[in-house]
Design a protein around this nucleic acid. Structure first.
Length: 371
DNA sequence: AATGAAAACAACCGCGGGAGG
DNA sequence: TCCTCCCGCGGTTGTTTTCAT
């Protein structure tokens, strides 16, 4: 059983839109709106187009205040930063760039920006070396998806040695505000763990309380900062869960949830934990328990593991020789992140683009405008 | 000037999730 | 609570334009 088609494909026109079709669609929507039903809209105005096609045409080209082409350097920086931190979530990225659509940004990234940034990458490089300095087969970077590797490389290129999460972890001012119910939970849990690290509070919240709180569940993240924050919490909560469960000797632990699941899109995540392996409870020896205890302590004390490329790996990239930015350059997010931006979207020109609030925010590094 | 390759742009497709009955 | 419909998203494909030879 396949999915039912959204329209009768035999009777709809496909391909480029004519000026007449554009005019019809634009005129109708400007006077009547979409009517809340894109599927029915083409019949209303006598267009032989799929409703989805109409929607796409309107959102990407016909609605007011759309900008095409001519991306500025600042926009490049924003796109690059956000891609590295949250991946290909184009709608979220577009929400930070008024007048830009997710499709436009996606195309721009795929056709130009990515090449601009990665074009200088040496082929067949970034092979990790073993202790003898020899290339290893099937080693970690090869196991990463091209997207993950791309983001990792971009991140390293732009941020030097910094793990994107490390500054984020260490600077509470960068964290997005929590839902009030979450804040309350944090306060409760604070005394429980006596942790001085607010992120750990969030971790505990996520690990032990979030699923049981409909309000917290309903508080869906929508900003770039929210997404990054959520990723960070997810990483640590998974790990803390596993470690705590291990140390508690829970025999019923679900080891089917690896640290690096398919949802985990951040390449750096893979450095935070063993790849895809659960903990063998029954065979766990004292040494393993000690190691886990130490690892848990690291997390609780905010000593997050991060991928630090070796000198020789760094040297493999032309880009590193071009970096003149500061290692402290990852202060992407201001305190202005809050719930109000969560409702923004790419076609809402009235939405406050949170990343625009500080024009100097992206001065820490420059893209390679050498061409 | 012709032609093929590459780049850029535009549109389509299918899936997931939310809203509402 | 379940089911259906629709919207929105991200990946992919198709078309057009530009560039190099």
């Amino acid at each position: 059983m396949g999915r039912a088609p959204c329209c009768d494909k035999a009777n709809v026109k496909r391909g480029p839109w004519s000026p007449e079709e554009d005019a019809k669609l634009k005129a109708f929507i400007e006077t009547h709106g979409t009517g809340g039903n894109w599927i029915a809209l083409p019949q209303k105005i006598g267009l032989k187009r799929c409703g989805k096609s109409c929607r796409l045409r309107w959102l990407n080209y016909l609605r007011p205040n759309i900008k095409h082409g001519g991306f500025t350097e600042e926009e490049d920086n924003i796109i690059c930063n956000l891609y590295i931190s949250i991946g290909s979530r184009w709608s979220i990225i577009a929400a930070q760039l008024p007048g830009r659509t997710d499709n436009d940004i996606k195309n721009y990234w795929n056709t130009r920006l990515k090449k601009k940034l990665l074009g200088k990458r040496k082929q067949s490089n970034f092979q990790p070396r073993n202790t003898n300095g020899l290339m290893e087969e099937n080693s970690y970077p090869n196991a990463l998806s091209s997207s993950a590797l791309e983001r990792l490389q971009l991140h390293m290129q732009l941020q030097g040695l910094q793990n994107p999460f490390s500054n984020f972890y260490n600077n509470p001012a960068l964290w997005p505000k929590l839902h009030p119910s979450q804040e309350k939970m944090v306060q409760t849990l604070q005394s429980f763990k006596e942790s001085s690290n607010p992120l750990m509070q969030n971790t505990l919240l996520s690990t032990h309380a979030e699923q049981g709180s409909p309000k917290a569940e309903a508080y869906k993240p929508a900003t770039a900062a929210d997404v990054v924050h959520q990723d960070a919490v997810k990483i640590n909560s998974s790990k803390v869960d596993l470690l705590e469960n291990s140390l508690n000797g829970m025999s019923s632990m679900d080891t089917s949830v690896p640290f690096m699941g398919t949802e985990n899109k951040n390449p750096l995540d893979s450095n935070l934990a063993p790849r895809g392996e659960g903990v063998e409870q029954s065979n766990m020896g004292i040494q393993e328990v000690s190691a886990l205890q130490a690892e848990l302590d690291d997390i609780l004390n905010n000593r997050t593991t991060c991928y630090i490329p070796q000198e020789d790996q760094m040297a493999e990239f032309d880009c590193f020789r071009e970096i003149n930015g500061s290692k402290e350059s990852l202060m992407w997010w201001s305190n202005d992140f809050d719930g109000k931006s969560a409702s923004s979207n790419s076609w809402d020109s009235t939405a406050t683009p949170v990343l625009q609030t500080d024009p100097g925010m992206f001065q820490d590094y420059e893209l390679g405008y050498s061409q």
